[in-house]
Amino acid sequence: MLHRIENIFRQQEKDKLTIYFTAGYPKLDDTQTIIKALNETDTDIIEIGIPYSDPLADGETIQQTSHQALENGMNLNLLFEQLKDLRQITDKPVFLMGYCNNVLKYGTEKFCKQCAEVGVDGLILPDMPILEYQKQFAPYFDKYGLKNVFLITPKTSEERIRAIDELNGGFIYMVSSAATTGGSWQESPEKTAYLQRIKNMKLKTPQMVGFGISDYPALRLVNQFTDGAIVGSAFLRALDPDKLEQSVKDFISLMRSNK
């Protein structure tokens, strides 16, 4: 049987969109509401952020939402509890994004087992190096059928990209430029050249581009070269705590509309 994530990338003829949000933000119990709302939109993959006290790779928006979520009382046991009915709510692939320390402290095997039980498809841990993945994480990921997502940047060497491609990840997370999350997307010859260069490598792992993508033109552009776009900070900024579901749907419509 194909992994849920592999099915998504079989659908050739459409711009693919991953939406990231921080679990427990704006309010502690909003996690399910947001997943339900996203399920009714043209979103392809759902990425749920585990709030962390020290999110190194994240810019101000996700630092703030993480901080708020922790203040709200978010924690891992609660998150897995909130995701208990995940597979009754949505068929879309779901990835958890967090930092190594979340997983290590929880216990890598226990964490992976919980993910598998609730139906999470894979993990994105931006501070996990390849070496540590192979040594400490891969055996559990394999045991519980989880896909890992590695990040590459415009500075990642071809050799390293090839090595990552061999690791059979869910997709390759292409960081759009040298920056933390939530910056602005400016189209530039360098960016296009980067997208083209990766496209030309004909990797077997699908690629999605994230960091700084916030509107339709950027979504369209990266889909011309790669397998999709990841939007996080812009989505979080658009959330309206008072009209949560509607603000989710409005944002996705906007991302998808050529106006």
Partner: peptide, 11 residues
């Protein structure tokens, strides 16, 4: 020890 760093810092 080790180096648990975002890919962005790798180079």
């Amino acid at each position: 020890g080790g180096a648990y760093i975002p890919e962005l810092l790798h180079p």
